[in-house]
Simulated scan of single mutants.
Amino acid sequence: MPNTSVRAAAEGMPEINRRRLLLGLAAASTAAAAVAVAPHSRAAPIEDRELIRLAEALPAKVAEYLAAQREADKVSKYWKSQVWAPDELTVPGTAAPWEGRADSQPGQAETTVLGDYLWRAGDKFPRRIVVKSWHVHRKLKEARCEMRKALKASRLADSLDLELEISRLEKLKVSADTYEREHAKVSREAKEDHGKFWPIAGELHEALEKHVAAIMNETDLTMEGLVIKAQALAEWDQTGRAAGHSFGNVAFRHGKAWHGQIAASILRHAIGGAA
């Protein structure tokens, strides 16, 4: 059964079955071949000039976006592993931070200085930061208060134990303070650097999406136009893979109807509705 987009495209047209669709495409292909053999024939259909212009401009749009994306990725890669939490402040994660099970884990997932989750080599999940400087400060204050009470009451054994605990907490305090201060400082630098490149990549990504959408919105008059649209969708998908961010054949803002549009074009050509 055709989907809603295909049904809408075929509304008011003769019933289309699989055999007729294939025969229609075969006929359209034959017509396209005839155009290639006799390009100056008056009977030969001519493809929409704007569609051809947009198709010719697509490679440059792709190259421009990919170049910007590579630069942005370099920035992210550079800053990704600049600051890691010391082991004494963390425990291994037991689930992905976005899963429901993440709520049962202690602390917070470790992040890069750009705010992304930080995966360490060999770890299945991001580590969890379970020691914060404010927490150590509070524990240290409580231990010192207990130490004073133990000394005042001449509880020697308790005093020795508390002395060891205070020494441990003081070292932990230095570790937590240093990490949090460094993470905040480098994060400011990273985000400033990041802000120089990623907005450009984002703008060029949207410009590319708009360009592919313009191709899909243009009416294809011949089989050549249908092929242009199919190639544009393939280029969009390949570009996403090349950038490491698979887009799929559906865009985010400007091309949510692409599947329906290509299906409607196929049906028009199959029943002879195009030139």
Score class of each variant (00 low, 15 high):
M1W: 09
A9H: 13
G12V: 14
G12I: 14
I16H: 12
I16N: 05
N17R: 15
R20Q: 13
L21I: 11
L22P: 03
T30H: 06
A32Y: 08
A33F: 07
A36G: 03
A44R: 08
A44Q: 08
I52A: 09
A55G: 05
A60E: 10
Y65H: 09
A67N: 06
A68W: 00
Q69D: 08
A72P: 04
K74V: 03
S76G: 03
K77F: 00
W79M: 00
W79R: 02
K80H: 06
Q82C: 03
Q82T: 07
V83L: 03
V83G: 04
A85M: 03
P86Q: 03
P86L: 03
G93K: 03
A95M: 04
A95C: 06
A96Y: 07
P97F: 04
W98H: 07
A102Y: 04
D103W: 01
Q105V: 01
Q105K: 01
G107M: 02
A109D: 02
T112L: 04
T112F: 03
L114P: 00
D116L: 02
L118D: 01
L118N: 02
R120C: 02
G122C: 05
D123T: 02
K124Y: 00
F125Q: 02
P126L: 04
P126M: 04
R127N: 11
R128Y: 05
V131S: 06
S133W: 05
W134K: 12
H137K: 14
H137F: 07
R138T: 11
K139T: 06
K139Q: 15
L140P: 11
E146P: 06
M147T: 12
K152Q: 14
A153D: 14
S154N: 14
S154D: 14
D158I: 08
S159E: 15
E163N: 13
E165N: 12
I166M: 14
I166N: 10
S167P: 04
L169I: 11
E170C: 04
K171A: 12
K171P: 00
K173F: 10
V174H: 10
S175E: 00
D177V: 11
E182T: 14
A184Y: 08
S187Y: 13
S187H: 12
D193R: 15
K196Y: 13
F197Y: 15
F197L: 13
I200L: 14
I200A: 10
E203K: 14
H211Q: 07
V212D: 00
A214D: 15
A214L: 08
N217K: 13
T219L: 09
T222S: 06
E224M: 06
G225W: 02
L226Q: 04
L226R: 11
I228T: 00
Q231D: 06
A234Q: 07
A234V: 00
T239Q: 03
A242S: 10
N249S: 09
F252N: 10
R253S: 12
A257W: 08
Q261P: 00
A264S: 10
I266Y: 06
A270E: 06
I271A: 05
G273E: 09
G273A: 09
A275N: 07
